[in-house]
Computed example of a mutant assay.
Amino acid sequence: MSAAHAASIVVVLSESGHVHQEFAQTFSNQVLRSQPGMQISVIEVAQLAANALSEASLVVGVGSRAAAALLALESTPPLLLSMLPRESFERLRGQRTRVGAVFIDQPPARYISLIRLALPELERVGMLSSRDSQDGVARLMQAAREQHLRGHNELIADESDIMPALQKLFPDGGVLLATPDSSIFNAHTLPGILLGAFRRKVPVIGFSAAYVSAGAVLSLYSSPEQLASQCADIARNLLNGSTALPAQYPRQFSIGINDRVARSLGLNLDSSTALRERLEKLERQP
């Protein structure tokens, strides 16, 4: 895609909340910095019409709802999706080509390395999966084995399975690694999961900043600005003639800590800055 033929970029948001707006603002600012004449339109998925995309050189879908709506269209310009889990991306994409992504979830090895750095005394990592998230949990289990941790998973078919699964996962402690599977971890189930883990003295590691506020000890996540920045890099490369439309894990990440919950569990954690710097240093090693 050359700059001469790059008529416009359309950003399609799953919803109008501030998280999606932050993504759109950061993405637009960064693309316009290097392509000041670029026309960038931002719409919500409810406003989506196939003809609105016909002149676009690139369409950016933000969130799972936007991704599903865009991939349901018979044809689109090249698509770049973000703020959705890898499993959702792979399921929705099917056999479509010219579709890239920056996932919301982190590389499996990064989650496990954080556990190693922050909670070195814990050797058992428990996970909950549905049929839709089994592949992702299998990758996490493999990463745990590679770093000499004992990974255990319980399959959840119904919300009523969650509490018995926690009891089976943690007979004598460990750490619960939450995954972006909304059939298990959602606004309805999360308070019970966090409370059940706390009562068993099991720290929870989340995948968004909201998890720390809700009661997770740690959260490893990429902010909307960090995801948007990576998407802007891909967009700039496309506008400058690249044909690569990759599917990538986030490069940049943040770590959040709930000090109150950590103290209640008797955990003495390094600061979020120190953990992030140690994790970044570890990832730079060959």
Rank of each mutant, 00 (worst) to 15 (best):
A66H: 02
S242Q: 05
K168N: 15
L269A: 11
R260D: 15
E15Y: 07
P36E: 12
V19F: 09
V261K: 10
L58Y: 05
R96K: 09
E283Y: 09
N51G: 01
E159S: 11
A52M: 04
E280V: 13
Q95C: 06
G100V: 11
L275W: 02
A4D: 06
E22A: 10
A50K: 06
S64W: 10
S208T: 13
T273Q: 15
R251A: 09
R139Q: 11
D270N: 14
R150Y: 11
R263V: 15
P203D: 10
R236L: 15
Q167S: 13
Q248C: 06
L190V: 14
E74Y: 04
Q226I: 03
A6K: 01
L79C: 03
L79E: 03
C231I: 07
G196I: 09
L84Q: 08
H152Q: 12
T273I: 15
N268R: 12
R96F: 08
F27P: 04
F185Y: 15
P78E: 00
F89C: 03
A101N: 07
A68H: 11
Q142E: 13
F207M: 08
E283Q: 09
N268Q: 14
L81N: 05
E154T: 09
S28F: 02
L238T: 07
R86Q: 00
R284Y: 12
E154R: 13
S213Q: 15
Q147E: 15
D270M: 15
V45A: 13
Q21T: 11
I43Q: 11
G61H: 04
P85R: 01
L58S: 01
N29D: 14
V59F: 01
M141H: 12
Q142V: 05
I43D: 08
Q248F: 07
G100P: 08
R116W: 12
L194Q: 09
S34P: 02
S223W: 02
Q21S: 11
C231M: 12
S264V: 10
V202D: 12
T179R: 07
G215M: 06
V19C: 08
L275R: 04
P191H: 07
A165Y: 06
M141S: 15
Q106L: 13
F198P: 05
T76Q: 01
G256T: 08
A216W: 02
V175L: 10
A274W: 13
L169E: 14
A72C: 05
V42A: 08
P85S: 06
S182R: 04
E277C: 06
